[in-house]
């Protein structure tokens, strides 16, 4: 078979360099405007953790790159529609251009470079997010979810609570476990999220990545939101996340109930539909 030869010298036969430059300028301007507007909008809501700050930077870089891609596509499309629209009654055909190897290589190679850049950059940000705190202040919290309630155990303080109280500026190592179905831990202001998987604490759950870290940077009261569908009460499965000063936290911890020796898992809100089934297969029976 003969090698495909491009007989046509350019993909756009009658397009002059100045037209091309005008198009490029419009696409560039459009990118600039879209990027400036979009980067200045507070898409991700309040940024109250050091992890989320990295995510916001990454989003802004992606907004600029995406605006560029979107602008190029739109300018090409609108120009083509404006320029090459057939006159009424014109039944002739377009130019028999079958391709242009150089151009095809370009639009294969450039996106490849862009996505590999995006991949490498994301990996760096991911490593930053998951790095340990610089100041070494780390607090462990065991988070347990069940339909449709949260429980937070503080092994160092020896207390348990249905609210998540944390001192500001301290890195939290959250150990996640679920008693019935999969739930997911998310505080939108912190920007981190991880599923709570039933069986994570069992011997068979060693492969489950059940620890997530976050360093809250602002004081306030937020919501722990369940983001994995868990049944009829999913939409309202919330707990308060209170970020406070170290002193306030210590005072709070001193007031809380001690963790009972034998974990009483039957407390908490009973399940809805199918609850009986989950009781039969209580995962902490071992």
């Amino acid at each position: 078979m003969r090698r495909a030869v491009n007989r046509m010298p350019l993909p756009m036969k009658d397009m002059s360099l100045s037209t091309f430059l005008k198009g490029a300028a419009i696409a560039g301007l459009m990118t600039l405007v879209i990027s400036l507007v979009m980067v200045n909008i507070d898409w991700l809501g309040p940024v109250y953790s050091s992890e989320k700050e990295d995510i916001v930077t990454l989003l802004n870089v992606m907004i600029v790159l995406s605006s560029l891609v979107f602008s190029i596509v739109m300018v090409m499309m609108v120009y083509a529609i404006w320029k090459y629209r057939a006159k009424p009654g014109d039944e002739s055909d377009g130019e028999p251009i079958h391709g242009n190897t150089r151009l095809e290589i370009i639009w294969t190679a450039i996106p490849t470079v862009i996505v590999i850049f995006a991949g490498v950059y994301s990996t760096i940000v991911l490593n930053d997010i998951e790095a340990k705190a610089d100041n070494g202040k780390i607090m462990e919290v065991d988070v347990t979810a069940q339909q449709f309630a949260w429980r937070f155990d503080y092994p160092e303080q020896g207390v348990t609570s249905t609210e998540l109280h944390v001192p500001v500026g301290t890195q939290l190592d959250l150990h996640l476990n679920a008693l019935d179905v999969i739930h997911s831990f998310w505080v939108p202001e912190w920007g981190i999220k991880r599923d709570l998987v039933p069986g994570a604490d069992l011997p068979g759950g060693d492969d489950i990545d059940d620890t997530v870290t976050v360093t809250p940077t602002e004081e306030g009261v937020f919501s722990v939101v369940c983001t994995e569908l868990c049944g009829w009460g999913h939409a309202t499965m919330r707990a308060a996340a209170v970020v406070e000063s170290q002193d306030d936290f210590d005072a709070w911890a001193a007031d809380q109930t001690k963790i009972p020796d034998e974990e009483d898992v039957s407390s908490g809100v009973p399940g809805g539909k199918g609850a009986g089934v989950f009781d039969d297969r209580d995962l902490t029976d071992d």
């Binding site: 397009m15 090409m76 499309m77 083509a80 629209r85 057939a86 002739s92 055909d93 639009w107």
Partner: peptide, 17 residues
């Protein structure tokens, strides 16, 4: 992306209806 750009390339020097 190759597909998107190739469709756009198809529109150039065409008789668009």
């Amino acid at each position: 992306g190759i597909k998107i750009f190739s469709w756009l390339g198809t529109l150039f020097d065409s008789k668009l209806h």
